[in-house]
Simulated assay, not measured.
Amino acid sequence: MKTTVYIATSVDGFIARNNGGIDWLPSGGDTDGGEDYGYQEFIDSVDALVMGRNTYELALSFDSWPYGEKPVFVLSSRKIDIPDEIAKTVEYMCAPPSEVVYRLSERGFQHLYIDGGKTIQGFLSEGLIQQLIITKVPILIGSGIPLFGSLPHDVRLHHLETRQFENGLVQSQYNVIEDAA
């Protein structure tokens, strides 16, 4: 099973403000020439998304559901509300990352998009991330929700490529080196 993180951070390493706000992210569309930073190609390569409850609730607040018909698995220790219009593609799970990977692998999924701070941190801690695609937005927000937290061991990365965009965003792609533990 391949698991990949695709996420944006501020230069100081935050994925959201303390209140979960992402107003500092580029809005897309006309302000950046319609650039999608490789997102469509990436999302087309994954079978399903695994995200935490906070990321799910943020996605619900968007004008439209951003994941279309792609299966989404929401990790939470408590039940979540799933609106009828996305009930066919969204499922709640309460399990540790290793069990999530096992269950989804058994169901035939081969490439998971892992999203959300605590979810990413949990998968990294268990050695279950193979690839990181991190886009740095040229802004310092000073405090917020960090992408990375403490880890039980070093996680060594192999740099694959870095791309710079006209609006100053810098995207780096890494493979996680298997024997990092």
Rank of each mutant, 00 (worst) to 15 (best):
S76I: 10
P71R: 13
V72S: 04
T119A: 03
K88L: 15
V74W: 10
D84G: 00
R103W: 05
C94D: 15
K118R: 11
E99H: 07
S76C: 06
I129N: 00
L124N: 00
Y113I: 01
P97Q: 14
G122E: 03
K118I: 15
F109E: 02
P96L: 03
I114N: 06
E57F: 01
P97F: 13
E126S: 13
G52P: 04
R78Y: 04
E126C: 12
Y56I: 05
I80E: 11
G117A: 15
K79Q: 10
Y67D: 02
I114P: 02
A87D: 13
G127K: 03
Y67C: 08
M93C: 15
V90H: 05
S105W: 00
K70S: 09
I120Y: 00
V72C: 09
P96S: 12
S64D: 13
S105H: 05
K70W: 03
I80C: 11
F73V: 14
Q130V: 00
Y67L: 08
I114H: 12
S98G: 13
P96F: 05
L60S: 02
G127D: 01
F123S: 10
R78H: 11
K70N: 05
I129K: 07
V101K: 06
M51H: 05
M51C: 12
Q110M: 08
D63Q: 09
P71A: 04
S76N: 03
F123C: 09
F62Y: 14
E91G: 03
Y102R: 15
V72W: 09
L124K: 00
E69W: 02
C94S: 14
L112N: 02
D84F: 03
Q110W: 07
G127E: 06
L104P: 01
I120L: 09
G52S: 10
G116E: 08
M51W: 06
Y102F: 03
L75Y: 06
